[in-house]
Simulated assay, not measured.
Amino acid sequence: MATATAADFTSNPPAPALAVKSKEALVDAMEDIVYGSIAGVAGKYIEYPFDTVKVRLQSQPDGLPLRYTGPLDCFRQSIRSDGFLGLYRGISAPLVGAALETSSLFFWERVGRELLFTSTLYSRSEPLPLSALWLTGAISGAFTSLVLTPIELVKCKIQVPASAPGTVAIAPRPLAVIREVFRHQGLKGFWHGQLGTLIRETGGCAAWFGSKETATLLFRRWNASTSSPSSPSNPQNLPTTTSPPDLSPLPLWQQAVAGATAGMSYNFLFFPADTIKSRMQTVAANSTAAKLRFWEEGRAIWKVYGVRGLYRGCGITVARSGPSSALIFVVFDALKGGLHLN
Results as ranks from 00 to 15, higher is better:
331 V>Q: 05
310 L>A: 08
339 L>P: 01
298 G>I: 00
312 R>D: 03
323 P>I: 09
320 R>S: 15
335 L>G: 05
304 V>S: 14
335 L>C: 08
305 Y>H: 11
338 G>C: 14
305 Y>V: 05
299 R>S: 03
334 A>E: 09
328 I>A: 12
337 G>H: 02
307 V>S: 09
308 R>K: 12
312 R>K: 12
326 A>E: 04
328 I>M: 13
316 I>N: 03
334 A>F: 06
333 D>P: 01
316 I>Q: 04
303 K>W: 01
336 K>I: 02
312 R>Q: 12
308 R>E: 07
314 C>R: 09
320 R>Q: 15
304 V>I: 05
336 K>G: 05
310 L>T: 00
319 A>R: 07
300 A>Y: 03
300 A>M: 12
332 F>N: 14
338 G>E: 15
337 G>F: 01
323 P>Q: 08
309 G>A: 07
309 G>R: 02
326 A>G: 09
322 G>Q: 06
304 V>E: 14
323 P>K: 13
301 I>A: 02
334 A>R: 10
339 L>R: 13
319 A>V: 09
309 G>F: 03
321 S>F: 03
299 R>A: 06
332 F>M: 14
326 A>Y: 02
310 L>M: 08
308 R>L: 08
310 L>G: 04
337 G>S: 05
299 R>W: 04
315 G>Y: 05
310 L>I: 01
314 C>H: 06
300 A>T: 02
325 S>P: 00
323 P>F: 04
321 S>Y: 03
329 F>P: 01
314 C>G: 02
324 S>M: 13
332 F>L: 15
314 C>L: 14
327 L>N: 11
308 R>V: 03
323 P>G: 10
324 S>T: 08
312 R>S: 12
329 F>H: 12
323 P>V: 05
313 G>W: 00
325 S>M: 06
335 L>A: 13
331 V>P: 00
303 K>N: 08
329 F>C: 08
328 I>C: 10
320 R>L: 03
314 C>P: 01
329 F>R: 11
299 R>P: 00
334 A>T: 07
332 F>P: 01
303 K>E: 07
340 H>E: 15
330 V>E: 09
302 W>F: 10
324 S>C: 13
332 F>Q: 15
331 V>D: 04
307 V>A: 12
325 S>N: 06
332 F>K: 14
317 T>Q: 10
341 L>H: 09
309 G>W: 00
330 V>F: 08
337 G>T: 02
311 Y>G: 03
308 R>W: 05
325 S>E: 03
338 G>M: 15
341 L>Y: 06
310 L>F: 01
315 G>T: 07
338 G>L: 13
333 D>L: 07
318 V>D: 10
307 V>F: 11
327 L>I: 14
310 L>S: 07
319 A>P: 00
322 G>I: 06
324 S>A: 15
335 L>Q: 07
335 L>D: 05
332 F>E: 13
315 G>I: 07
317 T>Y: 06
317 T>V: 04
328 I>Y: 14
299 R>D: 03
